[in-house]
C-alpha cells in the first residue's frame, strides 16, 4: 500500500524521465548503429562504422581541441571560484546567502540571450573597446571575440555558477575549529591550506569540474556566436551532423561517445575515493 502511494507521488518525475530523457537516449543509441543515405535518410542496418569514423584524424583533432578548451575553461573557473568562495564563506551568514543568490540570478535569463549580450560588450565597436579607447588605454580596437578569447570569455561566464555552487558548498562546510586545531598543532597558513582546506574541498572542486567540463564540450552556440564559427567544438560537430550534413547516425555516435566518456569520468572519481553524495547524487 505504502509503496503504491510512493510510486504515485514519484510518477510525474518517472514519466518525465522516461519520455524526455530515456527514450531520446535510446533512440540516439539506436541511430548510432545505422547508416545514412546521401539525402539525409536512414538506412536500417547494424554497423559500427559511425564509431570507427570518430577515430579519423580530422575528428580526433576536433575532440582534442574541444577537450583542451573545456579543460582550460574548467581551470579558469576553479581559479576564479576558489578565492571567491573563501571570500564569501568569511562573511556573515546573511551576507553569504545574498551573495550566493546573486550568483544564481543570471539563470533567470536564457544563456543564448546572455551570449548575445556579450557581443554588444565585446565587438570592435562594443562597450569595452569604446571605453578603452576613450581612456586612451589602447589605440586600435582589441579583438575580444571571433577568436579563442571570445569562446573562453563566453564559456567561463556561462559556466562559472556551476563551479561556484559546489565549491562554495564544500568550502562552507569546513569547520572553523578544525582550522584552529591545525594552527594549534603547529601548521602554518600554507600547510593549513594544502593539508586541511584543500583536501576537504576536493570533492566540491571535482563536482564543479564535471559540471563545467562536460557542458563546455557541448556548448556549440557560444563557439558559433563568440568564436565566429571559426572554432569547431564537439558540440558544433554534433549539431552540424544533425542540421547541416544531415548525417544523423554519425551525430548520434558522437553523442553516445560523449555520454560514455562522462560516465567514465564519474567512475574514475568514485575509484579515487570520491563520494557520490558530494556530486548531488548522480
Amino acid at each position: 500500500m505504502k509503496n503504491k502511494s510512493k510510486f504515485l507521488y514519484l510518477s510525474p518525475v518517472v514519466i518525465y524521465a522516461i519520455v524526455l530523457i530515456l527514450f531520446p537516449i535510446l533512440y540516439i543509441l539506436f541511430l548510432s548503429f545505422q547508416t545514412n543515405d546521401n539525402y539525409g535518410g536512414i538506412i536500417y542496418s547494424l554497423t559500427l562504422n559511425n564509431y570507427i569514423k570518430i577515430f579519423d584524424i580530422v575528428y580526433l583533432r576536433v575532440l582534442f581541441k574541444s577537450a583542451s578548451i573545456a579543460f582550460i575553461t574548467t581551470v579558469i573557473c576553479i581559479l576564479i571560484s576558489y578565492p571567491f568562495c573563501i571570500f564569501i564563506s568569511e562573511k556573515k551568514p546573511n551576507v553569504q546567502k545574498i551573495l550566493i543568490t546573486l550568483v544564481m540570478v543570471p539563470f533567470l535569463t536564457n544563456s543564448l540571450i546572455r551570449t548575445y549580450g556579450w557581443i554588444v560588450l565585446l565587438r570592435k565597436e562594443g562597450v569595452f573597446n569604446s571605453i578603452l579607447q576613450a581612456l586612451n588605454i589602447c589605440d586600435g580596437p582589441i579583438s575580444f571575440m571571433y577568436n579563442n578569447m571570445g569562446v573562453f570569455i563566453g564559456l567561463v561566464y556561462t559556466l562559472l555558477p556551476f563551479m561556484i555552487l559546489p565549491v562554495y558548498s564544500s568550502v562552507s562546510k569546513i569547520d572553523k575549529k578544525v582550522l584552529e586545531a591545525s594552527e594549534d598543532l603547529g601548521a602554518n597558513a600554507y600547510h593549513t591550506f594544502t593539508k586541511v582546506i584543500l583536501p576537504q574541498t576536493l570533492p566540491g572542486i571535482f563536482n564543479g569540474s564535471l559540471m563545467v567540463f562536460i557542458p563546455a564540450i557541448g556548448m556549440f552556440f557560444i563557439a558559433d556566436l563568440l568564436g565566429g564559427g571559426k572554432i569547431m567544438l564537439v558540440g558544433n560537430l554534433i549539431k552540424n551532423q544533425f542540421l547541416v550534413s544531415r548525417n544523423w547516425p554519425f551525430g548520434a555516435a558522437i553523442s553516445i561517445f560523449l555520454i560514455v566518456i562522462t560516465f567514465l569520468l564519474v567512475k574514475l572519481y568514485k575509484k579515487t575515493g570520491g563520494n557520490m553524495d558530494d556530486l548531488g547524487g548522480f
Binding site: 575549529k177 578544525v178 584552529e180 586545531a181 594549534d184 603547529g186 601548521a187 602554518n188 576537504q200
Partner: peptide
C-alpha cells in the same frame, strides 16, 4: 602566535581532520 606556543588544545567538538 599559537603554533609557536608549546601548548595543545583538545577542542570541545573534537575538531578532527575528517579526511585523514
Amino acid at each position: 602566535i599559537p603554533r609557536k606556543r608549546e601548548v595543545n588544545t583538545i577542542f570541545q567538538n573534537f575538531a578532527l581532520f575528517s579526511h585523514m
